[in-house]
């Protein structure tokens, strides 16, 4: 039987398969002995087979990244207080922490190396 996800893609073959699919076979138990299963739904449980991890983090990951960025910002701040901006970039090995719009809700971009200058005419290709 095709999956329901495929069915919502709605080819006629899929749809007829779904329509003809059998209802759950259920045995009687004490709890349901007086209950007639008149409301069975016409599809089966389907395990998710192609699950993609969500693109937003869980809380633990979020807080870890935030703390990491906090440390980077703090480090940058300390260095900045002792030297000029150019030196800061130099002493943090080109890493520049980007403050987010608000500290409590930072988007936690990983610190990226400073970009190189765009190639100029006559530059040799880098190896």
């Amino acid at each position: 039987m095709c999956s329901i996800y495929e069915a919502t893609g709605a080819t006629s073959g899929h749809l007829s398969q779904i329509r003809n699919s059998s209802v759950h076979h259920v045995e009687k138990s004490r709890l349901t002995s007086k209950w007639q299963a008149t409301t069975m739904c016409n599809m089966d449980v389907q395990r998710v087979k192609d699950f993609t991890k969500p693109s937003y983090p869980d809380r633990k990951e979020f807080l870890r990244n935030r703390n990491l960025l906090g440390a980077v910002l703090l480090g940058t701040g300390l260095v900045t207080s002792a030297c000029n901006k150019t030196e800061t970039v130099h002493r943090t090995q080109g890493i520049v922490a980007q403050p987010a719009r608000r500290l409590s809700g930072v988007i936690l971009e990983s610190p990226q190396p400073a970009k190189e200058a765009p190639p100029q005419p006559g530059d040799k290709p880098s190896r």
Binding site: H24, V26, S29, T32, C41, M43, V45
Partner: peptide, 9 residues
Amino acid sequence: TGFINRVSG
């Protein structure tokens, strides 16, 4: 489904 411990499709 008629059962408290069986999820339906």
